[in-house]
Nucleic acid binder design. Structure first.
Length: 492
RNA sequence: GGCCCGUUAGUCAAGCGGCUAAGACGCGGCCCUCUCAAGGCUGAGGCAUGGGUUCGAUUCCCGUACGGGUCACCA
């Protein structure tokens, strides 16, 4: 049997992310990958990507590519993996099939596992008799000769782990502490399936050992099955890895209850979020804080590099965390606002679906929008009024804060404004503001009231990104005059 | 149902026997202001519950309730 270099003994940390390619990159999986990455990288250790594709029926075409591209765009670079190679490959379990059978047989020889010939029908019958029962260990003590004869006859079989019937098995988890399970709770689980593929329960143990994984990082749903894995390490005589189980990510249901984050909670795959205009950096920052808290924190903002430095396992929480889209949105807005304008323009481009007419100054428009959106997908809606003015009611001109209680003021303001801006040769924000603010004194009202009327006229909206003069600068002189004229006719 | 884990405001969370129980999102108010956003200031809101242990429990122990996970030839 292959002996592996014990990296743990040299204080080297090796973690892995081991997803099965059965769907899209769920945000919970991403967080597991992130923590796994951070735990090793905090100590300059190794991070491995391994694809667990032993469930041949659930394979989804292209799922592995999604996993790889997600890790790439989030910066969770792996040192070993399917496409980057490494000395412990292959890194796809279906390519390691023979290895598992070899180790399983070894376990049989050692008396820690056994062949089972029970049909699926028999097992189903068993379950009907006893709803909570498991396998009745029917084949556990088959005579050696019989086993060999049936094997020779080509009977289909599985290999099951022989669990101790008494006592307890415990291990220490780095987050949850000591976990003990009564051995009577452990079933003789299947290690090798009838199709010749191993189950997760078995191959992940073999692979983690062969790949020199020192810290097994995964969701807490494995907390109670880990004793079974620990028993496998013990049977082989291998040193157990350290375990780091992570609290689950939850989603809020409409009735206020919570449950494991899933599709019903909305866009929960990384790709969904990105398509909705969230930035990868913001997503990573936010999910890093779901279930982990920095020891010395002043700020909540972390780049991947800063996370690497700050991340320690004792900051990981035990209780499940509810994924809050509101806070993610806030984080995302902060990240967008901090972008320099060129980067913003570049990232925004794919989200701009509408055609921008020639009179609209695209750059100036985007500058107004840049600091006022929280996700890129808001862009198209928010900019639409620049392109075509929405229909509005004349009541929109009324505004109590600016003391506009009737239509006389807007009518006067707009009429005067027309006269002031028509002769303007430079139609920029400053010139417009200078020209129009003089109206306040002339009409005996506040500048705010003047601008309110004009802004409503040129936008048709109660709230807009930017003020009246900024909007006029974006849509240009002709369009501004046109909109003011139509406002005037609305006010007649 | 058995077993395992958890429980600080609506949410994320600090806290590790003695503090007016941090901070962030969200929410309310005020300021700023050409509306909005941003920014600044400010307010409301919390240790699930009952017993212990202790001079003293949010913090330690036990029970209860609630929540979650797990009991597959899925991972």
């Amino acid at each position: 049997m292959k002996e592996i270099f014990n990296r743990k003994a040299f204080n080297m940390i090796v973690t892995r992310f081991a997803p099965s390619p059965t769907g899209y990159m769920h945000i919970g999986n991403l967080r597991t990958a992130l923590y796994s990455y951070l735990i090793s990288k905090h100590e300059d250790g190794k991070f491995i990507l391994r694809i667990e594709d032993t469930d041949r029926e659930r394979l989804v075409e292209g799922a592995t590519d999604v996993i790889k591209s997600t890790l790439r765009t989030t910066g969770l670079d792996y040192d070993e993996g399917p496409d980057v190679g490494g000395e412990h490959g292959p890194y796809v379990q279906s390519e390691r099939k023979e290895i598992y059978m070899e180790y399983a047989k070894r376990l049989v020889d050692m008396g820690a596992a056994y062949y089972c010939f029970c049909s699926k029908e028999r097992l189903e019958a068993l379950h009907e008799e006893d709803a909570v029962g498991g396998y009745d260990r029917h084949c556990r003590n088959l005579p050696k000769e019989e086993v060999e004869a049936r094997l020779r006859a080509g009977e289909p079989f599985v290999i099951r782990q022989k669990m101790p019937t008494e006592g307890t098995t415990s291990y220490t988890d780095m987050v949850f502490g000591e976990i003990s399970m009564n051995n009577s709770e452990l079933q003789d689980q299947i290690l090798m399936k009838a199709d010749g593929y191993p189950t997760y329960n078995f191959c992940h143990v073999v692979d983690d050992y062969l790949m020199g994984v020192t810290h097994v990082v995964r969701g807490s749903e494995y907390l109670t099955s880990t004793p079974k894995y620990v028993l496998l390490y013990d049977a082989f005589g291998w040193e157990r890895p350290s375990y780091v189980h992570l609290p689950l990510l939850m989603g809020k249901n409409e009735d206020g209850s919570v449950s494991k984050l899933s599709k019903r909670h909305g866009a929960v795959s990384f790709a969904d979020l990105v398509a909705d205009g969230y930035l990868p950096e913001a997503i990573i920052n936010y999910i890093a804080l779901l279930g982990w808290c920095p020891k010395e924190s002043e700020s909540e903002f972390f780049t991947l590099d800063e996370l690497r430095r700050a991340f320690t396992i004792d900051g990981v929480s035990k209780s499940p965390a509810v994924f809050d889209f509101e806070k993610l949105l806030w984080f995302n807005g902060e990240y967008i606002h901090k972008l320099d304008f060129d980067s913003f323009t570049e990232l925004a481009a794919p989200f701009i679906k509408s055609d921008i007419p020639a009179n609209v100054d695209r750059e100036k428009m985007l500058r107004l929008l840049h600091t006022r959106i929280s996700k890129l997908s808001e862009l198209d809606d928010r900019m639409s009024f620049f392109i075509t003015q929405p229909a509005y009611e004349r009541e929109l001109f009324l505004n109590k804060k600016n003391k506009i209680a009737d239509f006389d003021i807007p009518r006067a303001v707009l009429t005067e404004a027309l006269g002031l801006i028509t002769p303007l040769t430079s139609f920029d924000n400053d010139s417009l503001f200078d020209a129009l603010s003089s109206l306040a004194e002339k009409l005996g009202i506040k500048t705010g009231a003047v601008m309110w009327c004009i802004r409503i006229a040129v936008s048709g909206l109660a709230a807009t990104p930017g003020g009246a003069t900024e909007i006029m600068e974006v849509i240009g002189k002709d369009e501004s005059i046109k909109r003011i004229n139509s406002a005037l006719s609305l006010l007649q």
